[in-house]
Simulated scan of single mutants.
Amino acid sequence: MPIMIKHRAIRDALLGRIVSGEWAPGRVIPGEVDLAREFGCTRATVARALRELVAAGLVERRRRGGTRVLGRSGRDAVVTIPIVREEIEAAGHAYGYERLTVREADPPEPIRQAFGLRPGAAAVHVACLHRADGRPAQVEDRWINAAAVPAVRTQDFRTVSPNEWLVRAVPYTRARHEFRAERPTDRLRGLLDLAPDEWVFVVERRTWREDAGITVAHLYNPADRFRITTRDPVAFGVDPGAG
């Protein structure tokens, strides 16, 4: 992987741990050697990623004291759910959308447990591709709990993405986000038009209304076209102009 892309993937993965609260303020994070081993890269690549986090005011580095997280915990932050179409259009780009699949099926065990469904209970699976100026920006792969959101059975998602439909039509009371960088599957690599060594930055989003699970989504973004803005409320989404 080219170093320019890989250091960004590592930076975003570390940023995700800070924003999500996995690394709380005051925590000393693993050293360069350990992070280089985890991500399979050189110490220089890790150091570059850490320098960008220092410049953003998210961590501080002290000689012999390690690297420490600054600021407030992601657990205390309010996280807004953006509409991908609006983000792309607000950046001055033409938005494109393609539904890849929609089906009602018995979800995998982790999804079933997240929704609290009994074996045999169906959920709706939707996958789609968001584009900016014709360029792939995000693959959205999502399960929606049909028991909690019966109206999903009437949606074909041909022209409106599940992201936009849920934000506009289905209220939620809480959400959880996890962030990570990972190597894409061959299918994702093709959909996102990635180079052989490029990574993806993944947002795993779960929402609930009271105790009922609404959706579990995996949002796959080219690692150099994703941003997290650390403010209140915390916002994150595709960045068509990056990279």
Rank of each mutant, 00 (worst) to 15 (best):
M1H: 15
I3T: 15
H7V: 12
H7Y: 14
I10G: 12
D12R: 08
A13V: 01
G16C: 06
I18T: 05
G21N: 08
A24N: 08
V28W: 01
V33Y: 07
V33Q: 14
V33L: 12
R37H: 06
G40Y: 09
C41H: 04
T45S: 00
V46G: 02
A47T: 11
R48W: 05
R48L: 12
R48K: 14
A49E: 07
L50K: 02
R51K: 15
E52T: 11
V54R: 07
A55K: 11
A55N: 07
V59A: 01
R63L: 14
R63D: 12
G65T: 01
G66S: 01
T67A: 04
V69L: 00
L70M: 15
R72M: 11
A77V: 04
A77S: 07
V79E: 07
T80Y: 04
R85Q: 08
E86M: 09
I88T: 03
A91C: 08
H93F: 11
A94Q: 04
G96A: 01
Y97S: 03
R99H: 02
L100Y: 03
D106Y: 14
P107Y: 13
P108A: 05
P108V: 03
I111A: 12
R112W: 07
F115T: 04
L117Q: 07
A121H: 09
V124W: 01
H125T: 00
H125Q: 02
A127H: 01
L129Q: 02
H130I: 12
H130D: 10
R131C: 09
A132E: 04
A132S: 05
Q138A: 12
V139F: 00
V139K: 01
W143K: 11
A148P: 09
P150V: 07
V152G: 02
T154F: 09
Q155N: 06
Q155S: 11
D156N: 09
D156S: 11
F157C: 03
F157H: 07
F157G: 02
T159V: 10
T159K: 02
V160W: 03
P162R: 02
P162A: 06
V170L: 05
V170N: 11
Y172C: 15
R174G: 08
A175V: 15
A175I: 12
R176K: 13
E182A: 13
R183I: 13
T185P: 14
L191G: 14
L192K: 09
L192C: 10
D193T: 12
D193V: 14
V200G: 14
V202S: 05
R209C: 11
R209I: 14
E210S: 15
A212T: 13
G213D: 09
T215I: 13
T215L: 10
V216I: 09
P222T: 10
P222M: 06
A223Q: 05
A223E: 00
D224Q: 05
F226Q: 02
R227M: 12
I228L: 08
I228Y: 01
I228D: 00
I228S: 01
R231K: 14
R231P: 03
V234G: 06
V234I: 11
P240F: 04
G241F: 12
